[in-house]
Design a protein around this nucleic acid. Structure first.
Length: 183
DNA sequence: TACTGGATTCACT
DNA sequence: GTGAATCCAGTAA
C-alpha cells in the first residue's frame, strides 16, 4: 500500500513544488487520478494569498494542507498549500484511474476526457467540497509518488509545458496528455 | 449592511 | 465567441 507524500514535501515554494507534482497520483477515498495539470499561486495579484484573510489564512500559515474554495456560485477548486511563506498549488486536471464509474455518476458525464479536465470538474468528480478545506495530507486525502513507468516517461522530457504570462500564475502540464483543461 | 466580482463550466449562436 | 448560472468572500461605508 503506497503512502502519501508528507506535508514537508511541500515546504518549498509553490512554483518549485508544482511541476514536481505532475505524474503523481491524487487519491481521495475511492477515486484516484494521475495529476496532469497544476497552477502555482504565491502572493501575486491573481492570488488569494496577496492578502491575509480568513479564507487565505491556510496559504499563509500552512504547507501540505488542502485548501478548497468555492467560486462562481457553484464550483469548488482544490489546492495544496506550499512554501514556508505564502503559496498554494491549484490542481487543474488529472487522468482518471480509480473510481471512474463513481466519477461518471457524479459528473453526469461518460466521456473520460471531460471527467476531470478542469479544476471544478475534478472536484465534482472526486466529491470534494468545503468540508475538505484545511485537512493535512494523509488519511483519506493523499498524493502518492509517481508510478515507476510515469516517472521514467517524465524524466525523458521535454514533456512538461510551462506558461507564465504577465500577471498570470505559473501553469505546468504534461504536454502529451489528452487529460488537460481546454483554457 | 450593501455591493462587486470571481483561480469555472456549459449551452447556445 | 458570448453569456448565464449562482453565492460567497472581500471591501467599503
Amino acid at each position: 500500500m503506497s503512502r502519501s507524500l508528507p506535508p514537508s514535501w511541500f515546504s518549498s515554494s509553490a512554483v518549485e513544488c508544482a511541476p514536481r507534482l505532475l505524474g503523481k497520483t491524487l487519491r481521495y477515498k475511492d477515486c484516484s487520478g494521475i495529476i496532469t495539470e497544476v497552477e502555482a499561486y504565491t502572493d501575486d495579484d491573481a492570488s488569494h494569498g496577496r492578502t491575509y484573510t480568513p479564507r487565505s489564512r491556510l496559504m499563509h500559515e500552512t504547507y501540505g494542507h488542502w485548501y478548497v474554495y468555492f467560486t462562481y456560485g457553484m464550483h469548488y477548486c482544490v489546492n495544496v498549500t506550499a512554501g514556508t511563506n505564502v503559496g498554494a498549488i491549484l490542481i487543474r486536471a488529472v487522468e482518471p484511474v480509480d473510481g471512474i464509474e463513481l466519477m461518471q455518476e457524479r459528473r453526469h458525464q461518460n466521456n473520460l476526457y471531460a471527467l476531470t479536465t478542469g479544476p471544478a470538474k475534478l472536484c465534482q468528480a472526486f466529491g470534494i467540497s468545503l468540508k475538505e478545506n484545511g485537512m493535512p495530507l494523509g488519511n483519506d486525502f493523499i498524493i502518492e509518488d509517481a508510478p515507476t513507468l510515469r516517472k521514467e516517461a517524465i524524466a525523458q522530457g521535454p514533456r512538461i509545458g510551462i506558461r507564465r504570462a504577465t500577471e498570470l500564475p505559473w501553469r505546468f502540464w504534461i504536454k502529451d496528455s489528452p487529460f488537460v483543461s481546454k483554457n
